[in-house]
Design a binder for these strands. Structure first.
Length: 497
RNA sequence: GGGCCGUUAGCUCAGCUGGUAGAGCAGGGGACUUUUAAUCCUCAGGUCGCAGGUUCGAAUCCUGCACGGCUCACCA
């Protein structure tokens, strides 16, 4: 009779009241399952394999949400789905009590029910539970999206992810994979003797990167705090403290633009290993990523967008200088100032922002010319010091740091890593330089993590550090082109009204 | 923040150069005891994102706004 959401809601509430009047609780506390949908199907297959042992009937109790109903007079097939999968159930109402028939008549698609019955196969071969009795476990008052097309409206999919998960199995699969990927990363690091730690999200100053922070206020202390923009500075304190191998997988917050590869809150892995340098980290990264892929997907050969990628080590390695030279034709070492580099770029008709400093220009070249060409996983290493304030310089090459980034599939920045700068004097100079560039000459405007510098003054062993964007790793391994597809509840603007 | 595209029934979508809104699924009623996008008959369902404007007349044209998508910028 009804079609508008409110009418459907009212109609279903009436069904609810009818059931209550019959003494049926539409939201009972418990239903004891003997099998998940998948287990029930497995059991049937096992029984069939052992059919020689004679006739046997297995009675199971399964539960799930009704995804489809095919009613045919006194018989009906429902598709039931639980967390494990789907199973068909067959109702033959001739043996049912009056109350069960009344309940059957008021059941809707979307309701959660529990059934007890024997396992069988229909004449078309579909594994089926022939229902002996059933109970309502939860009445759905809202209608489900269309069964064939599911839910495609991205707005609704992100805002009401639960509907997306009900309607679109592929979406569910992505998040199952995400969980497995993170579990595998943990296992890899734990197996190598890394200690998982937790460091503060609320910080008096947000360091370790240059991104704009979110600011919040602590009432009792009456002061502002920043949500962390990196894990780096606290993990290094722990290296100073004597933990030789630490890592954290944690949420990072950056108050910046949102895009298909940027989310204001995202998940970062950072690991630090004492007595290692960036070449050790390179090997660990490629082994970790390929192992995780092998463990979770059963292969290191994956598809991403139009690309075929093999994550198997060893990955291609190129210095930043060679990479930029090869793909853009510019040897930036020959243009050591912003002015000379701009002149060169101008002569080649390469667009750039006139306000950009030298490091930004090089980064621009990397992003525009190099990154799109790196389809197979590639480690680009040895960055200019001005691009890498927390990385250690190469011996005898003051302007170059032991830093690398890993790129793959023409678009994904998988990792950023370096031999960590552990000279406290040099670190202070780099911070000051950075602050001067960003906030001008007035030290009052600067925020420098003094305690971190103090920690370095106690002596940090030579250390190799690694940062991996977990969301991007998940995008890579699940072949998703938008970061929102791998974050369960992505940040959206509030809808008015 | 800029550009482009989108927003029509609960869901998925039609709706032409302006003439006052349609389908499928879902829903109500009916038929049907092995279907699986079940089938058949039937009924109902709309602030066409919001607000203005042009026009005799606007889902349709124009402007503004909201939200979303893509993209550019920003983001070491």
């Amino acid at each position: 009779m009804a079609s508008r959401r409110q009418d459907i809601f009212e109609q279903r509430k009436q069904k609810l009241e009818r059931l209550r009047a019959l003494g049926i609780n539409p939201y009972p506390n418990r239903f004891e399952r003997t099998h998940s949908a998948r287990q029930a199907v497995k059991l049937l297959e096992t029984m069939e394999a052992n059919a020689a042992s004679g006739e046997q009937k297995a009675v199971v109790r399964v539960a799930g949400r009704i995804m489809a109903m095919r009613k045919m007079g006194r018989a009906a097939f429902f598709d039931l789905r639980d967390g494990s999968g789907k199973i068909q159930v067959l109702f033959q109402t001739h043996g049912f009590s009056e109350a069960q028939i009344r309940l059957f008549d008021d059941i809707d698609i979307g309701d959660v029910i529990g059934v007890e019955g024997s396992l069988m196969r229909t004449r078309t071969g579909e594994p089926t539970v022939a229902v002996g009795s059933f109970v309502l476990l939860s009445k759905a008052l809202q209608p489900l999206p269309e069964k064939w097309h599911g839910l495609t409206d991205t707005d609704t999919r992100y805002r009401q992810r639960y509907i997306d998960l009900i309607a679109n199995v592929e979406v569910r699969d992505i998040f199952v994979l995400r969980s497995r990927i993170i579990t595998a990363v943990r296992q890899f690091l734990n197996d190598r003797g890394f200690l998982e730690v937790e460091t503060p999200v609320l910080q008096p100053s947000a360091g370790g990167a240059l991104a704009a922070p979110f600011i919040t206020h602590h009432n009792a202390l009456d002061r502002d705090f920043y949500l962390r923009i990196a894990l780096e500075l606290h993990l290094k304190r722990l290296i100073v403290g004597g933990f030789d191998k630490v890592y954290e997988i944690g949420r990072i917050f950056r108050n910046e633009g949102i895009s298909t590869t940027h989310s204001p809150e995202f998940t970062m892995l950072e690991s630090y290993e004492a007595y290692a340098d960036y070449t050790d980290v390179m090997r660990m990264l490629e082994e970790m990523v390929s192992w995780v892929s092998q463990t979770v997907l059963g292969t290191t050969r994956i598809k991403y967008a139009e690309h075929e990628v093999d994550l198997k080590p060893p990955w291609q390695r190129m210095t930043l200088r060679d990479a930029v030279k090869e793909y853009s034709g510019i040897d930036f070492v020959k243009y050591p100032t912003a002015a000379s580099l701009k002149e060169k770029m101008q002569s080649m008709n390469i667009a750039f922002d006139p306000d950009q400093n030298w490091a930004k220009l090089v980064d621009e070249l990397l992003k525009t010319f190099v990154k799109p060409r790196l389809i197979q996983p590639t480690i680009v290493y040895d960055y200019p010091v001005s691009m890498s304030p927390l990385a250690k310089s190469k011996p005898n090459e003051e302007r170059v740091t032991e830093r690398f980034q890993a790129y793959v599939a023409g678009s994904i920045e998988l990792a950023n890593a370096y031999s960590e700068l552990n000279d406290p004097i040099e670190q202070r100079l780099r911070f000051e330089e950075q602050m001067r560039e960003r906030h001008g000459d007035d030290p009052e405007q600067w925020t420098i993590d003094e305690d971190f510098l103090t920690a370095l003054e106690y002596g940090m062993p030579p250390t190799g550090g690694l940062g991996v964007g977990i969301d991007r790793l998940v995008m890579l391994l699940t072949n998703q082109q938008s970061i929102r597809e791998v974050i369960l509840f992505p940040q959206l603007r509030e809808k008015e009204g």
